[in-house]
Design a binder for these strands. Structure first.
Lengths: 340, 340
DNA sequence: AAAAATACTGCAAACGTTTGCAGTATTAAT
DNA sequence: ATTAATACTGCAAACGTTTGCAGTATTTTT
C-alpha cells in the first residue's frame, strides 16, 4: 500500500472544523466572534477547534472584513536611539494589550516612496510615525483609509493633512533650562545637533539665547549616538576655546560628551563645561552622569497615541486632533545649580 | 443633482487598474510579479497603477499564495533590555532589507497559549524566538508550517522539536573571565541573576568555581534592569560581609551594581569589589564604567538567523540545524587585571 | 513554407473567512 | 391557541489576489 500522506500538512480551516463539529463554516466563524451563537454549540465548537489546532486565519478575515488589527510603526532607518527604543518597548506592549499587532518599519527619507507603498499593502488599521523626515503629504495620501498618527515636534500649521498629531512643545522644558544656564553666567554656548527633530530644538534654544543678546558660538552635527557626542564634543573644544556649555540634541550624545570632557580632556562637569541633553533616558539619571535634560513624558505620549487610535477606529471621520505635549525641565548636576 | 460620492473611498483594486489599462486582472498581477509579462505592457500598467495609487493587497496575495512575508519576533513581556533592543534594532533592518515585515510579539510564560494562537493566525513565514520561557513543544506544534528559529543558551538535547537553534556557548566566554578573577585571588563570589537564560549562566559559573573548590557565597535575583542591579548589590553587600566579587547575569544589572558600589557605598571597583556583566552592551565600554563582560556577537547571531530563515524558505524540509555561537571574554577594568 | 516552439494574455477557480438574507425552531405576548 | 418576536443556523456571495490551463499571436526551426 503506497504512502498517501501529502508532503505538507494542509492548514486546517473552518470547513474542516465545521465537518468535525457537524455545523456550517458560518457557525465556526460566529463561534470565534462570539456573536449570534448558542453558548452550548460555541463550547462544542471551541473544544473541537482546539483539538484540531484550529484558529481563524487573520489574512482571510482581514481580507473579508476590509480591516485588520495590524498597526504599522515607522521609525528612521538609522540605528534606533534610546528614546525610540523606550517608545517601541512600551508601545508594542500597549498595542498588544489592546488587541493590535505592531508591524515595524524602518524608513529613510530617500527611496521612501516604494517602501511606503509596501506598508500600505498591508492595509493596517493604523500608522504611527516617529519620523519627521517623511513627506507627510505622501503619507496622508497613501494611508487615507487608516488612522494616521504623527509624533513630532516639527509641526507646520500649513500642513493640511488629515492625521492626528502629537506636537511636542520643546520650549516649555528648554526655556527654564537655558534661563538657568544664563543665570549662572554661562555665555559661550555650543551645540551638538543632528537631523530632523534636532533643528527645531536648536531653533527654540537660539531664540531664547537671542532674547539675551547671545547665540551659539559653535556647533557640530552628530547622529544622535553616544559615539558622535563623544567625538563632536572633542572637536568643539579643540576648535573653539572658552566653551563653557555644550548643549546636545539628545541625551545619548550628551552622555558621550560628558565622558569625553571628563575622561579625555580631564575637565570638570559642570564647573568647566556644563552639559545638557534632551529626552531624559534612563541613563541620564544614573549617578555617574546626573545629566540635566528635558523630559517628554513617554507614558503620556503612549496613552495619547492609544487613545487617538482607539477613538478613530470607532469614528473614522473625526477631524484631525492635536495633542500639545509640554516638555519638562529636569535639572541635575551636569549643569550648575542656579537659585531660581 | 444629488451628491453621489460614497462615504468612504473604496480601495482601488486590480480590477480597477485592469479596466483603466485595458487588460485583465491577471495581467496586473503578472505586471507586479514581473513574470510572463511583455515589458511594454508592464510599463504601461505600472504607470497607470501609479496614477491610481494602486499597490497589490498583501492580505489577498498572502491568502491566495498560502504564504506571506511576515516574520514574527517573540520577546518576553517584561521591559526589553539593552541586548534585546540591539537585536531588535538590527534584526528589523535586516529582515526588511530581505523583503520581510517584522511583527513584534510580547509573551509571558503565563497565558501564552492564546497569544501563540493569535500569532499563528497570521501564518507568518517565520518565527524568531528570543525567549526561553516559552514551551518549545507548544511552539513547534503550533508553527509547523513556518520556519521556527530559537535563539537561546538553554538548549536541552532532549527537545525533539523541529526548529533551527542558535545555541549560545556561554562557557567559552565565562571560563577565562572566572579564571582571571581566581588568578587575582578573588574568593568571595556573589551572583545577581534573573529568570530564564540567567540560570544557565549561573550554572556554568558555578561549575567553574566548583572545580576550584569554591561556590557563590550569596546571590540575589533581579529582573535584568539597571535598577534591580543597583538595589540587589546593596542588599548583598549589607547582608554578606567580605564580598569581593559581584557577577551579574547581564550588563545592565552590572552597571547598576557599579554605581551602587561606587556612589552609595563609596567603595572602589575593582579594588574593593570586582564587578562583571554579560552581553557587552554599548554602555559597558563607556569610560565611566569599563565593565568586564562576555560578548555574544550580535552580528553573527543576526546573520545566522537571516541565513537560517532564507534557506528554510527555499527548502522547508531541511532537518533542524544548530549553530553553536561561542561567547567571548571581554576584559576591562571593572575586574582586576590578571597576567594571563 | 510548413511545423514547432515561444511569448503573452484571458478565463475561471481557488485561498479561508465573514455577513446579509432567509429559513426554522423556540420562546414570549396577546 | 394564535400571533409576534426572538434565537439560532445555513446558504451563498463577496473580499482581492494568483495561477494552471487554454488560446492566440509571434518567432524560430527545418
Amino acid at each position: 500500500m503506497p504512502d498517501k500522506t501529502p508532503p505538507h500538512k494542509k492548514q486546517i480551516n473552518s470547513i474542516d472544523v465545521a465537518k468535525a463539529a457537524g455545523v456550517s463554516p458560518a457557525t465556526i466563524s460566529r463561534a470565534f466572534a462570539n456573536r449570534n451563537i448558542n453558548s452550548k454549540t460555541r463550547e462544542h465548537i471551541l473544544r473541537i477547534a482546539n483539538e484540531l489546532g484550529y484558529y481563524p486565519d487573520a489574512l482571510a478575515s482581514g481580507l473579508n472584513k476590509g480591516k485588520n488589527k495590524l498597526i504599522a510603526i515607522i521609525f528612521d532607518e538609522r540605528n534606533l536611539n534610546e528614546w525610540e527604543f523606550l517608545m517601541l518597548d512600551k508601545l508594542s506592549t500597549q498595542l498588544q494589550n489592546n488587541g493590535y499587532f505592531p508591524l515595524i518599519h524602518r524608513l529613510s527619507s530617500t527611496s521612501q516612496y516604494e517602501r511606503v507603498k509596501s506598508i500600505a499593502a498591508w492595509k493596517t488599521a493604523g500608522i504611527i510615525v516617529f519620523n519627521d523626515l517623511l513627506d507627510a503629504s505622501l503619507l496622508s495620501k497613501t494611508f487615507m483609509t487608516s488612522s494616521l498618527i504623527i509624533v513630532n515636534t516639527n509641526f507646520k500649521a500649513g500642513n493640511k493633512i488629515s492625521a492626528d498629531h502629537i506636537i511636542i512643545d520643546d520650549h516649555n522644558g528648554l526655556k527654564p533650562l537655558v534661563d538657568n544656564l544664563l543665570l549662572c553666567g554661562r555665555k559661550n554656548f555650543t551645540w551638538i545637533g543632528g537631523t530632523g527633530v534636532s533643528t527645531q530644538r536648536k531653533k527654540t534654544i537660539s531664540q531664547i539665547l537671542h532674547k539675551n543678546k547671545l547665540s551659539f558660538i559653535d556647533s557640530e552635527q552628530g547622529d544622535y549616538s553616544y559615539d558622535s557626542g563623544y567625538m563632536k564634543s572633542l572637536l568643539l573644544c579643540r576648535r573653539t576655546p572658552h566653551i563653557d556649555t555644550i548643549m546636545c540634541a539628545n541625551d545619548s550624545m550628551a552622555l558621550g560628551a560628558m565622558d569625553a570632557i571628563r575622561h579625555t580632556l580631564k575637565l570638570k562637569v559642570p564647573e568647566d563645561i556644563a552639559i545638557t541633553g534632551y529626552d531624559d533616558i534612563p541613563q541620564a539619571s544614573w549617578p555617574s552622569y546626573n545629566l540635566t535634560t528635558v523630559r517628554e513624558n513617554t507614558d503620556e505620549i503612549i496613552s495619547t497615541v492609544i487613545n487617538f487610535l482607539l477613538t478613530r477606529q470607532k469614528s473614522p471621520e473625526t477631524p484631525p486632533r492635536f495633542y500639545d505635549l509640554k516638555s519638562i525641565y529636569i535639572p541635575r548636576t551636569s549643569s550648575p545649580a542656579g537659585n531660581m
